[in-house]
Design a protein around this nucleic acid. Structure first.
Lengths: 128, 128
DNA sequence: ACTTTCTTTTACGTAAAAGTCAATTTTCAC
DNA sequence: GTGAAAATTGACTTTTACGTAAAAGAAAGT
């Protein structure tokens, strides 16, 4: 396993700019090590970036992504905290379920469009 | 069936502001009728708004939502247009498939968190 | 040592998607 | 037909998520 990734390695891998990764650091989403002033990204940072971009693709804001990441950071020991955590997990699950439903609905409509296209194509072939 | 909806009826139904609906009109996503200057929304506008908000929840930009809506507007007659249309449908389908995968991945991670929480709860109950 | 390529910080800029405010109409209920 | 409530336009503001540019320090190949 590699110890560290440079910032440009990661920008290339994920197709984002250095500005973006620094922005995520400013926002507290990742905390790369430093050698002097230079950032050194660990595998865990790389993994976090993956999750951030996943959230971004799903239209979550940075604040929402932070919520998700905070959830991942591991369940705390105390009882009250645990219950709060599970409530948050349930909330996120609902949001995701809504998005999934939205996707299915949209796909269904695209199916209709596709069928209409194919029907029209068939007509053209027969020579309407 | 109702003939028309007022703007505030729709803002209440969908939880958006009048500004938002007017913005969508400016962007050409909806074209409500007018009685004088007052907007009168038809069922078709209402349906379009639903689709816009669905796209918004999925993190599509207005431009991308416009693409989807343009697709819905029905397949044109000409052959070249039909092929272009079907290509666009395929593209959207891919985007949606990616989002769906992202959702499944995220849900899977939430499952892990949930399990960890439950495990910790069990420990607490036994009296660690 | 020298150049090239990275990387850093700081700071200002910007596009998208509305929010907010003000000043007028318009509509509706009575 | 009048007064309150709702709707309109237009201009300006805000927030989010970065982009961009400048100025300078560090690393790496030759």
């Amino acid at each position: 396993m590699r110890k560290y990734y440079t910032i440009t390695e990661l920008t290339r891998e994920f197709g984002v700019s250095t500005r973006t990764l620094r922005f995520y650091e400013d926002e507290g989403l990742i905390q790369p090590d430093r050698r002097g002033r230079t950032r050194l990204f660990r595998a865990s940072d790389r993994h976090l970036i993956k999750e951030i971009l996943r959230g971004r693709r799903l239209g979550f804001t940075i604040a929402e992504i932070r919520e998700i990441i905070d959830i991942y950071k591991g369940p705390p020991g105390e009882l009250g905290q645990l219950e709060l955590m599970m409530k948050r997990v349930a909330e996120k699950r609902e949001q995701l379920a809504q998005k999934r439903q939205d996707i299915e609905d949209t796909l269904a409509e695209l199916d209709n469009v596709d069928e209409a296209c194919l029907a029209r194509l068939a007509e053209l072939r027969v020579g309407t």
